[in-house]
């Protein structure tokens, strides 16, 4: 039981997970009441993502992540890759609006479409900027000096983990958004390019860490490790996690994109073609 208790209490993690789970559950219920059929697989993906996020942040795993480099890399793999990927597969754009009453939904839509929010969103989601942000964040927090401070200051540590979740949700939503280019989404070919673009630097970084001869991150020696383990072994496993499963996520992402692509190409051409014929 002790293992399920948080090592450090983070109100922001509790709030995020509670809102994500509660909002989605409410949305599902109202959706069914409205006669719509939500996807079972999508719901499972969403809740799995939420539970994973909570699990790596608010259990004994968070303790291990603070005091073992390779567990920390695993934590970030979940926070930045796996959990947000699963959450966006949960079709939040269909379910979450139902969590609000119709009037509030319309108002919320207007707020979200307001230029003040829309412009920054379009900027960070630009196909040239989004992959730079995704990879840049990984490199930024793995810079030896910055990593050192983040592991010493609990506030920086929280900012680091939150940035991973937020960027993960933004990036993976860009990739698995079911709307094709005609409906305002990103072209499927571009998405494949983005996945490739984030994979290469992650492989290089993971290899750099995993194959390094010396200890790159001495902060774990400074803080003490969760159990006695050779610093190089710790670093090598951490490098492998940054390298292989992180790169594999691009492959899995590509499979989802191909499926969306195939589905779109099998549907009749939308409005534009019809209009041309008429």
């Amino acid at each position: 039981m002790q293992l399920l208790l948080p090592y450090h209490f983070y109100p922001e993690v509790v709030a995020f997970c509670a809102l994500a789970a509660g909002g989605y559950a409410l949305g599902l219920r109202r959706m069914v009441q409205a006669g719509e059929r939500p996807g079972v697989g999508a719901a499972i993906a969403w809740f799995t993502g939420v539970v994973l996020t909570y699990g790596v942040m608010h259990t004994y795993l968070d303790y291990l992540s603070q005091y073992m480099f390779w567990v920390h890399r695993g934590q970030h793999l979940v926070l930045h890759h796996l959990a947000p990927f699963l959450m966006v597969l949960g079709a939040p754009h269909r379910v979450l609006p139902y969590a609000f009453p119709p009037a509030a939904r319309a108002r919320l839509g207007a707020v979200l479409r307001h230029p003040v929010l829309r412009w920054p969103y379009r900027t960070v989601q630009h196909p040239l900027i989004a992959p730079v942000l995704f990879v840049g964040l990984i490199f930024f927090w793995l810079d030896a000096e910055i990593h050192f401070d983040a592991m010493l200051s609990i506030d920086l540590y929280r900012v680091m983990n939150a940035s991973m979740v937020i960027d993960g949700l933004l990036f993976w939503w860009l990739i698995v958004d079911p709307r094709g280019r005609h409906a305002g989404g990103l072209g499927f070919g571009v998405r494949i390019l983005l996945l490739w673009a984030i994979m290469i630097p992650q492989i290089m970084l993971g290899a750099h860490i995993g194959l390094a001869d010396g200890v790159l991150y001495d902060v774990y020696a400074v803080c003490g490790r969760a159990w006695p383990i050779s610093p190089l072994t710790d670093q090598q496993i951490g490098g492998l996690i940054t390298w292989i499963p992180a790169a594999m996520m691009s492959v899995i992402g590509a499979l989802v994109v191909f499926r969306l692509w195939l589905r779109e190409s099998m549907q009749p051409e939308p409005a534009v073609a019809n209009g041309a014929k008429a």
């Binding site: 200051s153 609990i154 020696a221 400074v222 803080c223 969760a226 159990w227 006695p228």
Partner: peptide, 20 residues
Amino acid sequence: RSTFGHGKPDDSGFYDVSHS
């Protein structure tokens, strides 16, 4: 932001301690 851990004792009862 530091921790410590106790290793398993060897035959003579000595155990290592990881620390900052």
